[in-house]
Amino acid sequence: MALPLPPGLTPPEVAFLCEMELVTVVPRQRLEGLELLGGTTPELRPPYRAVLPLWLALLLKRQRRANILPPPWLHPSSLDTILRLETEVHKETFSPPPLFPPSNNNLHETRSAPFLPSCTADAAADALPYHWLEVGEILLDAAPDDLVEPDTVRRLMRDLREVRMAKMRAGVAVLDGGAVVGLKGVGGMEVSEGRAFISGVIDNLRKIGASREQSRREREAEERENGYDDADEDEDMGL
């Protein structure tokens, strides 16, 4: 009540976080490696490709010092494939997220966005990464001339978003006080958009079901006192 902001991140905040994603660029000018807090950026030597964080790539792109290579999943043909996956194969659930790159058995390896190379030129072509919506929109906006058929891409992104939002809304019908919707493969921006509604529904359903939950607990406590105690439960666990 005291905080005017709702819980969770707003779309501009999600987009800001997404600018840490790594993308592949083709530089047009030489640039020494920059010493940044996150490490040194690779030296840019045209025409060799380099992997840079999105924010730096956007900066260079605006100054016409580099071209951004769009990630493979942002091609019209792969978007079309994913859209078909969403509408025909996975009718209820979301299309699966990209697979993890093969592990080097390194325990300290980071396993989440934005530290996965999910938006570089060698990302998987058939799956939407965590920041697909943000990266797609930002690239459509800042570098349409680097994309293949930007208008088709824009249309397909719109379609994908509509299809996935509709699924998220339909998921509410199967919700219950304790149950959850399968949200595997949902992107960061979509979470930010759906959070308020889904958590509101769950909260209200929980309140309505509170009295039933209460009586169930009381009944269980009673049963436990009456001798159907832990021995029984252990048996169940064993089965």
């Binding site: 809304r169 019908a173 509170a210 009295s211």
Partner: peptide, 28 residues
Amino acid sequence: TRILDLFEDEEIVDVLTESFKKRAAEIA
């Protein structure tokens, strides 16, 4: 919810839960 704290009525819980879900989809 307040009434359900006072009266135990399974039917009301069921009806309220079901209708809340259906109406929530419409609201969305």
